[in-house]
Write a protein that binds this DNA or RNA. Sequence first.
RNA 1: GCCCUCGUAGCCCAAUGGCAGAGGCAAGCGGCUUAAACCCGCUCCAGUAUGGGUUCGAGUCCCAUCGAGGGCACCA
Length: 823
Amino acid sequence: MTEERATQMPAPDVLQQKWLPVWEKLAPFRSGDLTDVRPKKYVLDMFPYPSGDLHMGHAEAYALGDVLARYWVQQGFNVLHPIGWDSFGLPAENAAIKRGLNPRSWTYENIELQRTSMQRYACSFDWDRVLITSDPEYYRWNQWLFLKMYEKGLAYRKASNVNWCNSCQTVLANEQVVAGLCERCDSAVSKKKLTQWYLKITDYAERLLNDMQQLEGVWPDKVLTMQRNWIGRSVGAEVKFQIEGIDEPVVVYTTRPDTLFGATFFVIAADSDLAYELAKDSAHFSEFEQYLEQTKKSTEIERLSTDRAKTGLSLNRFAINPVNGERLPIYVSDYVLADYGTGAIMAVPAHDQRDLDFAKEFKLSVIKVVETGEDNPAETFVATSGDGVLINSGMLNGLSKDAAIAKITEFLFEKDLGKAAVNYRLRDWLISRQRYWGTPIPIIHCDSCGEVPVPENQLPVELPDPTGLDLTPKGASPLGAATNWVVTKCPKCSAPAKRDPDTMDTFVDSSWYFLRYLNPKLDSAPFDVKLAAEWMPVGQYVGGVTHAILHLLYARFFTKVLFDLGFVNVTEPFSRLLNQGMVLMDGAAMSKSRGNLVRLSEELDEHGVDAIRMSMVFAGPPEDDIDWADVSPHGSKKFLARAWRFSKDVTSAVGVDAKTGDIELRKTTHKLINEAQQAVETYRFNVAVAKAMELVNAGRKAIDTGAGPADPAVRECAEATAVLVSLFAPYTAEEMWENLGHQPSVARAGWLKVEPELLVAESIVCVLQISGKIKSRIEVPIDITDIELEQLALSDYTMKTALAGVEVKKVIVRAPKLVNVVV
RNA sequence: GCCCUCGUAGCCCAAUGGCAGAGGCAAGCGGCUUAAACCCGCUCCAGUAUGGGUUCGAGUCCCAUCGAGGGCACCA
């Protein structure tokens, strides 16, 4: 009984008590030593929201990030692998309101909880670099960067119809509206005309698009596609239309200038300024106002539903088609968007389904100008959008679509009636929020001076104590009620003035945090420009695909702005991106209400950190979702115990020369380590784990029935295994390393240097085929020539018999692996 | 509706166009044990969703169909 115990791996809680203090003391992942000569590599995990303790999703993400971080350390790199907390934002604030607590204390308690869990989970973070975005030392620099953008005209305020979440009582960025619903609370989003702060991301649309070429192949295609869709570049033309009774022409944007002769009416977005101007003096003004009211009230969901009949209102006014002088009746409608293009369109019902739907509703004429060979849209009410021959189009008749676009664009330009134009779906980024728990916008509103930036030396503008403030969402920022805080002096004229009461979208915080990690305590600048030059770009970013658009687009935008400001010398922040999948249970996302929640802490208590980490990594490719029902932590545990016993059974002394060991085992070890290396570098971590299992199997066999426990090759195999295992199971690996007589930590032991000469076998089994069917196998030297191999193959007994009397058409030889005789 | 990805053993998953199995789970048999669990050893299991095509040779490349997942969808 006691004997058995001695050969058992210690229990998980014993391992924790033993190793956590050792790791804290040795800090194997400290990366800030200026004299460190190792080459640098920046591995970054997306930082968490402190909304409670870590859950299964965190466990997977951090296990995967750790494989990469620990791997590169073993390969001799100085790896920067930091962690922090994205601690501002609505979840924290809502939770705080619900529990009647200060968002601050609630947030920081959760941070401590998560920090402890991460340490227990053996995350290889550099704990010297922790940052917390709700610290004034951090958000001060949000404000500083905001002011830099303000100086450049990249931060500005405008009145516009914005997305409004009635439940969160705040505005939302376009990116936070998903299918017409609020990303956070899933309630319907409506429009509200408000004056808000924006960042001019549209100035960077072209660069955000073009620079994706650098990311091709190193970011998941899926993410690149989503970003391209989001930016939504389109090419077309702007066309000037005169409106009867108005001097200034109205410009419309179209991607189909070739169909200009087919325009039969004209539509203006109901909520645009132009619509108001035109309706103002008309007899239809009250109807217009009614329609406008209705438009604004309708939620995004209703507006987007495609099966809804088109609505609108005739203004009884006319636009003149510049190419043929036709009078086009002007309508207002909500199917035209005020903030895309110019908010007005020429309607070509024959070749645009939306226009056709509207024409059908209002009995407007349909003129076909592109003959595509399909049925007439005027009869079928199915618009044709493909290529064809232009008809009914004057000078364009007979041309193809592309030729017509080129010709008409040139014509319009020459006559000063329009020009080629590019448009983007991307809108400017709305960053002001009417909530407390965020970065105050560093602007002071003065009656005589207007918007005045807070002077740099007065930063940070700290959040006031929330005691006594009503944080419940009311549609206006709670900060507005903090009189002592709001009322201040104008920095310019010293007159009484008011602080801007809004706070910033938390995506501002996460748009540059990767730079702050380089020196999170720096108090003279947001980040150290010199360190940025050394460490950037992030070599490996790991996080969920949920941030495919929002966070990654914003971070790319900020990086380009910082590049333009001369603060960084890279234009893209993240050179490689890995999106991990989700952890599911029985095919569905885990949730308490669904009753399929698996608690991380319970799993860790039951199976230990190592078994859980290994299960996460081994379950499948990292991008795939893991179904916890398919995962066997018990299996992982068994393997780890086996690996541990392997290390325990090695009897040779530390430092024996592996070269004197069993050559076959050495070959196996080097081959497997080489394969594991390839697997890790191509994100096939599950395969790398399988290689570790093979190593243990090989080692076990060598000890029991082969070279024996004292053979130096067995030690080499065990040590290489310990290092490989350290990527997935740090505690077990540390024990193995100790069993093998080494000082901690195995984390810095170093990857086995693969000897190329051990990778090449002297002989190999060659497959002999007849017409693609395997007939025989022969063992041949690795360096056999094609000619030699062919002769050998044809003289093989089985082959000879099989080929007797048949005509050989061709012999394919792929030395040394295969010969195929075609008959 | 449009675009992308993926269908391999009972299950999770491997396989530079060249022997379908690396590894694991589950199952079965044997050993250890008073017994059970643990542990150790061995074994079983698919011709790769379907139908065509390219090739000396296809899980891998191409086309179509079916199925699953994801993205986009009044952006003129």
